[in-house]
Nucleic acid binder design. Structure first.
Length: 300
DNA sequence: GGTAGACCTGGACGC
DNA sequence: GCGTCCAGGTCTACC
């Protein structure tokens, strides 16, 4: 029996974080390696950090504080712990300054719940690589199939935690080592297999440094161009990823967006993408968040 | 810049 | 059980 090292870290202690709201901000919590324990209010996820697989558990300690427990077999260095703490804050978008958005929300009845309930933060994966792969898995398919693809990726290629047995999201290297045929035939990614294999190869080779985009000084338009150069990432996927990067200038237009915006602003008539962007034009650099958290008349 | 057809999977449906 | 249709974004070729 190996020794289990457990560390507890305070992720945030201010009025910014309501963990359950961040978890439910979009569908990522339903995709492995995330597991949301609704009764305990704990978000679990197993992740690979450097060469270690660690188990993370995040919970709301009180109204203002979110804590994270880190479990591993080998003791983590102070530097390693700080890096994981930073990733925890990134996952919950705790460093996002939403005051500008909140100011706009207070003048719109359909958005005033956002500052009142401290909403506006979107759940992110541990790595941007994981987010890009997951977004590609959401395109041109149903949510049930997305869940299946991600589940098979994690279960087939993710490294297991020696503590919990749960698996981490597979590293780019693991995906490259598995090969495109495994992605297509066993993970059943379909035509996405070469896209995700190519992405993993470029990240693994150091040709593409996705993580640098998290702190990139580049304009949103420039980042969008770079995202669109990834095979499998089109306008919708790029806009979704920009939101996860804290850039809210573009609305991700999918069939659901067309339905919602058409009903709310265009009397149910078919809408072009430019009309959807125009409906939220007044929110400027916050328009994607405004679209996302807007209280529509009928969202069913 | 806009459009058409192909790409895959899996669920729904009819036979 | 089998075949067909459909939904879901992106890519490529073409205009």
């Amino acid at each position: 029996m190996e020794t289990v090292h457990t560390e507890s870290i305070l992720l945030g202690s201010d009025d910014r974080a309501v963990l359950a709201d961040i978890v439910h901000s979009h569908g990522w919590w339903q995709l492995l390696p995330f597991e949301w324990d609704v009764d305990a209010g704990v978000l679990h996820c197993t992740q690979q950090s450097d060469d270690q697989v660690v188990d993370l558990s995040l919970w709301q300690a009180d109204e203002l504080s979110v804590h994270m427990q880190v479990q591993s077999c080998a003791a983590l260095s102070l530097v390693g712990l700080h890096a994981i703490q930073a990733r925890g804050r990134w996952m919950l978008a705790l460093d996002e300054d939403l005051q500008g958005f909140y100011h706009l929300c207070r003048s719109e009845p359909r958005l005033e719940h956002v500052p009142a309930e401290r909403k506006g933060r979107l759940l992110r994966s541990f790595s941007l690589f994981e987010d890009v792969v997951k977004v590609i898995c959401t395109t041109n398919t149903t949510w049930a199939q997305t869940q299946g693809m991600v589940q098979r990726l994690v279960e087939r290629l993710g490294r297991p935690s020696p503590v919990s047995g749960s698996r981490a999201f597979p590293s780019p290297q693991a995906i490259v080592a598995a090969g495109e045929a495994v992605l297509r035939e066993e993970v059943r990614l379909g035509y996405r297999a070469p896209y995700i294999f190519d992405l993993a190869r470029r990240v693994s080779d150091g040709e593409l440094d996705l993580e640098a985009w998290r702190t990139s000084p580049a304009s949103t338009g420039e980042l969008r161009k770079q995202l669109l150069q990834i095979k499998g990432v089109g306008p919708y996927a790029a806009a979704s990823l920009l939101m996860l990067l804290g850039r809210y200038d573009y609305i991700g237009v999918d069939s659901w967006a067309r339905k919602l915006v058409s009903r709310q602003f265009y009397q149910g008539q078919p809408v072009r993408e430019s009309e959807i962007q125009a409906a939220f034009e007044r929110y400027g650099a916050w328009r994607a968040l405004a679209y996302w958290f807007y209280r529509y008349d009928d969202s069913t």
